[in-house]
Design a protein around this nucleic acid. Structure first.
Length: 260
DNA sequence: ATGGTTGTTCCACAA
C-alpha cells in the first residue's frame, strides 16, 4: 500500500500537475492539503476518472484537506475533535483497507506574537489527545500531511535564521516531540537517519528568493505511524520531481510504502 | 533588515 501526501497550494490551480503526477506515480492513497476551495467545489469527478474515490473537507479561500483512494473510503471523520468552535478545514480521517489514515494541515502559527501561534499550539495539543485515543484502539494508523514543523536542525537550510519562526522555535518542536513520543514513528527519519550519508531532504521550498534553485528548503511534510503501521513500514521517499515543473506547488509529494 | 513569489479575493492576507 503506497500513501502519498502533498500540499498542492490550490487544487484548482494545480489540477494539470496533480493529474499527471497521479498517472505517473499511481499511489493507492493520496492526502492533499491546502485545496483552497469549498467542499462542494472539490473536483472529485476528475480524480474518479483516474480511478480514485474522493473525500474532501474544504472552506472558502484557505486551508482544506482531501483523501483520494483506489479502494473504498470508510468511516469518514471530518475535523479534529476537541474544539467545536474551530471552523478551519484542516483534518480528515478515514479507514482504507483496514488502516486508519488522516490528512492533516497543521496551522502555520506565524507571526508568533499573534493569536495564530497559540492556535497552532492548541491544535497540536488536540492532535496529541486524538492520537492517544487512536493508539488505545491498537489499530494501524497513519497521520500524514503538512505539519508546518521543522523537526530538527537537519531539516532546514539555515537553522539560525529560523530559530524564532513558528515552524522551528523550541515550543513548536517540543509539541511535535510530545506527539511522536506517544509511541509514533516518523517514517522518513526512521528510514533515513541523519549522519548516514543522507543529503538534506526537504519537502517545501519558498517561491521567494530563489529557494528552489538554491535547494534552500524545509522538511515539514511528515508521516507519523502507529506501532502497528510502523511494523509494515518499508519505504518513505520524497519525490522532488513535481517541484521542478511549470506552475509548481511550493511543496512536493512524500510517498509512504507499507507492506500489504 | 530586506526582499522575494504565488493563490485567492476584492486589492489585502496567508503562506
Amino acid at each position: 500500500m503506497r500513501i502519498a501526501t502533498w500540499n498542492v497550494n490550490s487544487v484548482k490551480a494545480r489540477l494539470p500537475n496533480v493529474c499527471s503526477w497521479l498517472e505517473q506515480a499511481a499511489p493507492d492513497v493520496v492526502l492533499f492539503q491546502e485545496i483552497k476551495c469549498e467542499t462542494a467545489a472539490f473536483p472529485g469527478s476528475v480524480f474518479e476518472a483516474l480511478g480514485y474515490r474522493a473525500a474532501a473537507l474544504g472552506q472558502k479561500s484557505y486551508n482544506g484537506v482531501a483523501i483520494l483512494s483506489k479502494r473504498p473510503i470508510e468511516d469518514l471523520r471530518e475535523g479534529l475533535p476537541g474544539d467545536s468552535d474551530d471552523v478551519q478545514a484542516r483534518y480528515l480521517e478515514a479507514t482504507i483497507d483496514g488502516v486508519r489514515i488522516a490528512s492533516l494541515y497543521l496551522p502555520n502559527g506565524n507571526p508568533v506574537g499573534t493569536e495564530k501561534y497559540p492556535y497552532k499550539l492548541r491544535w497540536m495539543a488536540r492532535l496529541r489527545d486524538h492520537a492517544a485515543g487512536l493508539l488505545a484502539t491498537e489499530q494501524p494508523f497513519v497521520l500524514g500531511g503538512d505539519y508546518n514543523i521543522i523537526p530538527a536542525a537537519e531539516d532546514v537550510y539555515d537553522p539560525a535564521a529560523w530559530a524564532t519562526d513558528a515552524l522551528f522555535r523550541l515550543e513548536s518542536r517540543s509539541a511535535f516531540r510530545a506527539l511522536v513520543n506517544l509511541g509514533l514513528t516518523e517514517a522518513y527519519r526512521a528510514l533515513h537517519p541523519v549522519g548516514a550519508g543522507e543529503p538534506p531532504a526537504y519537502t517545501f521550498w519558498d517561491y521567494q528568493a530563489g529557494r528552489w534553485p538554491r535547494d534552500q528548503g524545509l522538511r515539514i511534510d511528515h508521516f507519523l505511524l502507529s506501532p502497528q503501521a510502523a511494523d509494515r513500514l518499508v519505504g518513505c521517499t520524497i519525490d522532488r520531481g513535481p517541484r521542478a515543473g511549470e506552475k509548481a506547488s511550493d511543496h512536493t509529494p512524500v510517498v509512504l510504502e507499507l507492506t500489504g
